[in-house]
Every structure is written in structure tokens, then in C-alpha cells.
Simulated assay, not measured.
Amino acid sequence: MITGRATFLVGAALALLLLGGPSASAKRVTVVPGDRPIAIDVPDAWKVSEIKRGIQVRTADDEVYLWLENYRPAQFQTLLDEHNAYFKDQGVKVVGAETAKQVEFPTYMLKVTEYPATYEGKPTVLRYISVVPKAEGERSLLVSYWASPAGDKKYDGDTQKILNSLAAAYDGK
């Protein structure tokens, strides 16, 4: 039996292999601006806001949050420290060792890291997807994912569409 976490890991790896087309009810949002921008397709019902290094995307009911942030390698630890502080302030507690899976692609490397965690004493879903281009000088991307277990299941299809559009953006470079 494949658990939701295992399904996500497999889905994330597959999503970055597939060239998913834009959804009919999605808006195109730029994550990494510039001469070679990275954009994703976000379901219309989801809320999008700009943050320091990219965008925050969340469901209307606040059950799923995604942060897509571009960074330089030297900024990675600072970015993780900011996330750890945010999650601590929110009451999220990591309750075990992380699990990680890394997959190499022709133009980038993908690493998915999951953390067993709780929020308000109940299980919560906390994972990171790091996309590191192999071309020198290009910015890396960290996709941070926080969801309730129910929201993780309810919005799995929408999340996969977002990741498929991200894969298409990277594969199209």
C-alpha cells in the first residue's frame, strides 16, 4: 500500500518529468522573473501573494500553503532558518527524522525532504522540494509545502497541477 507521503514523493518526481499543460481554470504566475522566467499555473480559487524571494500560494480555506522562493546557493541556510522560525512561531513541531529523496534530471537536480510534524498537537504535512539547476549562475528554487492531512488529500490534484506546470517551466529552459 502506498501512503500519501510516498504518493507525493513519487508524484513530485514524476511531475518534474512530465510536461503538464495549463489548466483551463488556472492563472499563470511568475515565480522567478528575468530573461528566462519560471512561471506556474495556479488554480483560480487559490490565493497568490508576493513574498521576499518569490510567491506564496494557498487554498481559499487555508488548508494548504506553498511557498516558491528563488535563491542563490549562499542564501540556502538563511532561507531554511527563516522557515524554521516561521514554523516554530506557528506552533509546528518536527517530531522525528526527515526523509529525503534526490533525483537527477538533465538540467536540474530535485530533492524532496519530508518532516514528520505536528501542529496544535495533531499531525501536519511539512515538506520541501528543492530544484537546483545544473547551469552555473541560475537561481535555485525552494518549494515549501505545509498542509493539514485532510487538505493534503483534498488538494492533491491541484498541487500536482502546480508541480506539473513548474516541471514544464524547467524542462522548457
Rank of each mutant, 00 (worst) to 15 (best):
L16C: 11
R127T: 08
Y108M: 13
E104C: 07
N70L: 01
R139I: 00
L142K: 09
Y108F: 15
V131E: 02
A150Q: 13
L142T: 04
P37M: 01
E69C: 11
K134C: 03
A85D: 04
V92H: 03
P37Q: 02
P33G: 07
H83L: 08
D156M: 10
G172M: 12
Y170I: 07
T107G: 15
L18S: 09
P37I: 01
A169H: 05
A26R: 00
F8W: 11
P37C: 04
Y119F: 15
V32T: 06
R28N: 12
D89H: 15
A26W: 00
D62F: 06
A15L: 04
A26F: 01
I51K: 12
G11C: 05
T159R: 13
N70E: 10
R28T: 15
P33E: 05
Q75V: 07
A85V: 10
Q56V: 06
R5N: 12
K93M: 04
V131G: 03
R58E: 14
W46M: 05
K153Q: 14
L166V: 02
T59D: 05
A117D: 00
V32K: 06
T30N: 02
K47L: 12
L14N: 11
G20Y: 08
A85Q: 10
P123G: 08
A97H: 09
V57G: 01
S25W: 05
E63K: 13
L14G: 08
D89R: 15
G54L: 06
K52M: 10
K153D: 08
V125M: 10
V132A: 14
T159V: 14
L110V: 09
A135M: 05
S23A: 13
G20T: 14
K101H: 10
T78V: 13
V112D: 03
E136D: 10
P22N: 12
A117I: 04
S25V: 03
F105S: 08
A100P: 01
N70V: 05
V112K: 02
E63L: 10
A85P: 07
S148N: 07
S140R: 11
K52F: 06
D158I: 01
I55E: 02
A60S: 13
K27C: 07
P116Y: 00
G21W: 10
V32W: 00
V92W: 00
A117L: 02
P116W: 00
E82H: 09
P106W: 01
Q90C: 08
A100Q: 13
S148K: 09
A167W: 02
A6H: 12
Q56K: 12
Q102H: 14
V132L: 12
D81M: 06
P116F: 01
L126A: 05
D89K: 15
R72V: 07
T124Q: 06
A60I: 05
Y65R: 11
L166P: 11
P149V: 03
A169Y: 04
Y170Q: 05
D62W: 04
K154R: 15
L68S: 03
A150M: 09
K101N: 09
A147H: 06
A74V: 14
P106H: 05
A117E: 00
S130P: 06
P149C: 04
V32M: 08
N164V: 02
S165T: 10
V131F: 03
